[in-house]
Simulated assay, not measured.
Amino acid sequence: MFLYKIEIEMETTSAHLIILAETDEKAFSVVESHVARHYIKSPIITSAAIVEKKRTEPGAGYFIPQQ
């Protein structure tokens, strides 16, 4: 299993998604569903890219500074 930090670009904004998945393909397959959970009307995703990928182990995580 891997911990992924995925950068998502939408028409009017951007976001990061932290997801636990077995493969890159499985990580990308859930991006749209996670984005849709946070909006009444799902935004159009223009791009999604893996920014970081780490093996899971105790203490693994990401620090995301406020922009």
Rank of each mutant, 00 (worst) to 15 (best):
I40F: 10
Q66C: 00
F63E: 09
A36H: 08
P58Y: 07
K53G: 02
A60M: 12
E25R: 03
A36I: 06
V51Y: 03
S29F: 02
K26V: 07
I50F: 00
A48Q: 07
A60T: 11
S33W: 06
Y39R: 04
T46E: 00
T56N: 12
A36L: 07
P65I: 01
E52K: 13
Y39E: 04
R55G: 06
I50P: 00
I45R: 03
I64D: 02
S29Y: 02
S42I: 13
I44H: 10
A27T: 01
A49D: 12
S42N: 10
D24Y: 01
A60K: 13
R55H: 07
I18L: 12
L17Y: 00
E52S: 13
H38G: 12
T56I: 14
A49G: 11
T23V: 05
H34V: 13
K41Y: 11
K54D: 10
T23C: 04
A48Y: 07
V30N: 08
A36D: 12
A36T: 06
F28L: 11
I44A: 06
Y39H: 10
G59Y: 07
S42P: 09
A27C: 01
T23F: 04
K41P: 06
S47G: 04
I40M: 14
E57I: 10
H38S: 13
T56G: 15
